[in-house]
């Protein structure tokens, strides 16, 4: 890739930080508690907390999230509160308002409504990958609203990200989704409920049975996507570990690892080892396979179909 590198925005020895994205699945309360009890021991700089997929999931309420947030912050981790991506109901807006006016923690806006609420209340905010920032002018408008960091939309290529990087406003950081099942679409429909012939209003919380989503295969048995409630994800895991040098070179500030029920710690450790140059990406790949039972993909980064894989 011919990266467009703006040296002014890349301090010497620039090394991206590691972020743990929000848990996208419905895990029972005990599992979430156990997971976040461990996170403070992991090599992670930023942790996103909260429900970003379905408002019906209630393992944790906002107060539970805030308690975890405090604990992680005390452990020296930067905490960001994530918000719902598809906001439809008044009750969802109510929760959104509470998060955006929390007065304490940075907010990940996953909808322009959240941007407005956070900006309006002076709460620091970042945007998640579902907020459509495809060009520097959009980034500038949001920076004027107080945006601290943006996440590149998943379908942007490395080249497009580098071009936006070269013209990003001062003070705005860049995050890239570097590892995990990619959220590809959101719907009013719950596909987990639909898979069991149940209406969404009476879903029976079936997605609790699928801690990493429910696999969808094509009719010739190829792993294709994963159903996660109203969200559709890639079945293969997006893996940009082999691109880690380039990500640093183009001045990406944060690499997002999206949690899975197994292997997340090993993924973080592998990325950390490569960032610290203790391991080469090729040496660290083996450790990532456990978190990718249906293989890797990296097509978007290379300007190809997102499902395409070079690794």
């Amino acid at each position: 890739m011919n990266a467009v590198i703006d040296q002014r925005q890349r301090p010497a020895g620039h090394r991206p930080r590691l972020a743990l994205g929000p848990v996208l699945y419905y895990w029972p309360r005990e599992q979430l508690e156990a997971f976040y009890a461990e996170v403070s021991q992991w090599p992670v700089d930023v942790v996103y907390l909260g429900e970003s997929v379905c408002a019906k999931r209630r393992s944790f309420g906002l107060d539970d999230w805030l308690a975890i947030a405090q604990r992680l912050e005390d452990a020296g981790i930067e905490v960001v509160l994530s918000t719902l991506t598809l906001i439809e109901a008044e009750s969802e807006l109510k929760t959104l308002r509470r998060i955006c006016t929390n007065g304490r923690f940075t907010v990940e806006a996953n909808d322009l409504g959240a941007v407005r609420l956070a900006a309006g209340s002076g709460t620091p905010f970042v945007t998640g990958p579902a907020v459509n920032i495809y060009n520097p002018r959009t980034l500038r408008v949001l920076a004027e609203q107080g945006l601290r960091r943006w996440s590149a939309p998943l379908e942007l290529s490395g080249q497009a990200i580098a071009a936006i990087q070269a013209r990003r406003p001062p003070g705005v950081e860049t995050e890239v989704f570097a590892f995990g099942r990619m959220p590809l679409a959101y719907s009013a429909r719950c596909f987990s409920a639909r898979a069991a012939n149940r209406p969404k209003d009476d879903c029976g919380y079936l997605c609790l049975d699928d801690p990493d989503g429910r696999l969808v295969r094509t009719q010739e048995d190829a792993p294709f996507v994963a159903l996660n409630g109203v969200q559709t994800q890639s079945a293969p895991v997006c893996n940009l570990l082999p691109e880690i040098e380039t990500l640093g070179e183009i001045g990406v500030d944060v690499l997002r690892i999206s949690p899975q029920s197994r292997g997340t710690q090993a993924v973080l450790a592998a990325f950390q080892a490569c960032l610290e140059r203790r391991l080469a990406p090729a040496e660290a790949m083996e450790a990532l396979r456990r978190a990718a039972p249906f293989g890797f993909c990296d097509g978007y980064w290379r300007g190809e179909p997102g499902a395409a894989a070079s690794c």
Binding site: L86, N132, E155, M182, L184, A185, R189, V225, G299, A307
Partner: peptide, 21 residues
């Protein structure tokens, strides 16, 4: 469209081009 418009990458995931891009 069963998916929220502007938030669906299924087409680019498979074929490289999406409504957004």
């Amino acid at each position: 469209c069963v998916m929220a418009e502007g938030r669906c990458l299924l087409s680019s995931y498979v074929a490289g081009q999406s409504p957004n891009t």
